[in-house]
């Protein structure tokens, strides 16, 4: 069946079986690789995206549920050439080892910062409670989300014309 998805501000028509989890469509049909397959069980967070501004596990989100809603992936935060504040912060703090979990971390972080621009350490820990990292990059991930909060604060302080680009 054909389903319309709104991903990173663009509308896409995808032809897929209705029970296909959103993750497979993002990765294979829309060529958006950032969200990762980690468990397919909603246990590890590697597949995290934002749906309507909230962190969501795309490996257990059926396509039909995602239809008509605003989906944001890491690709919607910026590009390698023009990274957004969360991406800049992860690069600046060198917050990856293998990096496989990092896209999910960034999306959980993005959803947190959207609603809580100045999170405490405990807020960050709570927002990342469903995200697993095996390399032990946790300290740097938390530091990057704090740094992203600062960068977004600086961006918000800029004249309005420049600050429209949000991290999600």
């Amino acid at each position: 069946m054909t389903i319309t998805l709104n991903v990173n501000g663009k509308s896409h028509q995808v032809d897929a079986e209705a029970d296909t989890p959103l993750l497979y469509v993002l990765r294979n049909d829309l060529d958006l690789h950032a969200a990762k397959y980690g468990c397919g069980l909603g246990q590890c967070g590697a597949c995290t995206v934002m749906i309507d501004g909230k962190a969501a596990l795309s490996c257990v989100t059926p396509l039909l549920v995602a239809q008509g809603r605003e989906i944001t992936t890491v690709e919607g935060l910026g590009t390698a050439e023009n990274p957004g504040p969360i991406q800049k912060a992860f690069i600046e703090k060198q917050s990856a080892q293998c990096g496989y979990c990092i896209a999910g971390m960034m999306m959980s972080g993005a959803a947190l910062l959207k609603h809580n621009p100045k999170p405490s350490d405990d807020d960050i820990r709570a927002a990342l409670r469903t995200n697993l990292c095996r390399c032990g990059t946790h300290m740097r991930i938390m530091a990057a989300i704090k740094r992203a909060s600062e960068l977004m604060g600086q961006q918000a302080a800029l004249p309005a014309a420049e600050s429209n680009r949000s991290a999600g």
Partner: peptide, 15 residues
């Protein structure tokens, strides 16, 4: 390797 990994590049065999 980090910029590609944080921007959705083809960074892994899975991609």
């Amino acid at each position: 390797d980090i910029p590609g990994k944080v921007t959705g590049g083809v960074a892994y065999i899975q991609d």
